[in-house]
């Protein structure tokens, strides 16, 4: 018996073998992380001129002596639009720097020459270049309006008779996309509603808006301006669906989804939401839709945009631009 025990014990001990010295290392070499910084290959790019409208993309390359946080800043010389690309590593490659023509800070890029700047966290070194945009990026989707073509007479608008009412399309340099945007401002001290603008599908030549996706892959996008010093604006969007495809909308038997956006930021901001995430609200509280209860963007009969503000808060102002439905992903302007 003892023999058996001894044999088993020896077997167990043999199982307990050891790791040999391992000369490989986990992670990057410390020298790559904490060694002295230097630029080995300077800033390069695949194209000097890029046409984003035909699907071209640009990317940038560089090689550094160590892993470092880097930032590429592309600034439109005419528009002032800014695109930032950031990363961490010891080199810039196509995988980490590809630019599709989109914007980080509004306005969006136009056809223009852009300054390109590569900077490194904690280092003074700055590498520069330029790139020319032949045509700016196109955004596929159903555009409700970018307000570049003026007021569509088939839209419906209402403006309260308050003080300092200013509801109109304006054209000036502050537009985040193109040259025009829709301005909404005024003081109404007896009601939340200041004014509204309704976009009926009929304004686009059909009883339902020409959107092909479903609720889960359709995104509603809008550029909204928050007035500095004023955080009282509430934008309410109502999405009225023609569930029975009758060509009209009946509130009692068809779905309305509502999106309430408190405009509590300053400056322009892109607001995107998946259509199926937009709730049905009654008096601001989640409720059950009156229609088929499904988000059907392809049956949208009308989109209502209401500018609201608490009447005791006084003057409220906001601007909107580039209202668009996109497919599969939020707008990347």
């Amino acid at each position: 018996m003892k023999k058996y025990i001894t044999l088993v014990l020896l077997g167990m001990i043999m199982l307990s073998s050891c790791h040999k010295k391992d000369n490989s290392i986990d992670g990057p070499n410390l020298n790559d992380v904490y060694g002295e910084f230097g630029v080995i290959n300077t800033l390069g790019q695949n194209l000097d001129s890029v046409d984003f409208a035909v699907g071209q993309t640009a990317y940038f390359t560089a090689q550094m002596s160590k892993i470092i946080d880097w930032k590429i800043t592309i600034t439109g010389q005419t528009s002032g639009a800014v695109k930032e690309i950031t990363g961490t590593g010891s080199s810039l490659t196509q995988a980490t720097t590809t630019w599709l023509g989109e914007t980080t800070y509004f306005p969006v890029f136009g056809a223009e020459i852009c300054d390109v700047q590569l900077t490194f966290e904690g280092e003074d070194d700055t590498l520069t270049s330029t790139i020319k945009i032949i045509q700016s990026k196109l955004n596929p989707g159903f555009l409700i309006s970018d307000f570049e073509s003026g007021f569509n007479n088939q839209w419906t608008s209402y403006i309260q008779s308050g003080a300092d009412m200013d509801f109109q399309i304006k054209t000036d340099a502050s537009s985040p996309q193109g040259n025009s945007y829709y301005n909404m401002a005024g003081t109404v001290d007896w009601d939340y509603l200041i004014g509204y603008l309704y976009f009926g599908a009929s304004a686009y030549g059909s009883p339902q808006m020409p959107i092909t996706g479903n609720g889960d892959n359709t995104y509603f996008n809008i550029m909204i301006y928050g007035e500095p010093g004023s955080v009282n604006t509430i934008l309410l969007f109502q999405f009225q669906e023609d569930d029975d495809l009758s060509g009209g909308f009946a509130n009692s038997s068809e779905d309305t989804y509502s999106l309430e956006i408190p405009v509590n930021w300053e400056g322009w901001k892109l607001y995107s939401v998946k259509y199926s995430d937009i709730p049905c609200l009654v008096n601001g509280q989640p409720s059950t839709p009156n229609g088929n209860g499904q988000h059907n963007p392809d049956r949208l009969n009308q989109v209502n945009m209401l500018h609201l503000a608490n009447p005791v808060t006084g003057f409220a102002k906001t601007k909107v631009d580039y209202i668009i439905f996109t497919q599969n992903e939020p707008l990347k302007p």
Binding site: D22, N23, I25, D26, G27, P28, N29, L30
Partner: peptide, 8 residues
């Protein structure tokens, strides 16, 4: 350690 992190 058995294997170094960032160094041998």
């Amino acid at each position: 350690e058995i294997r170094g992190q960032g160094t041998t």
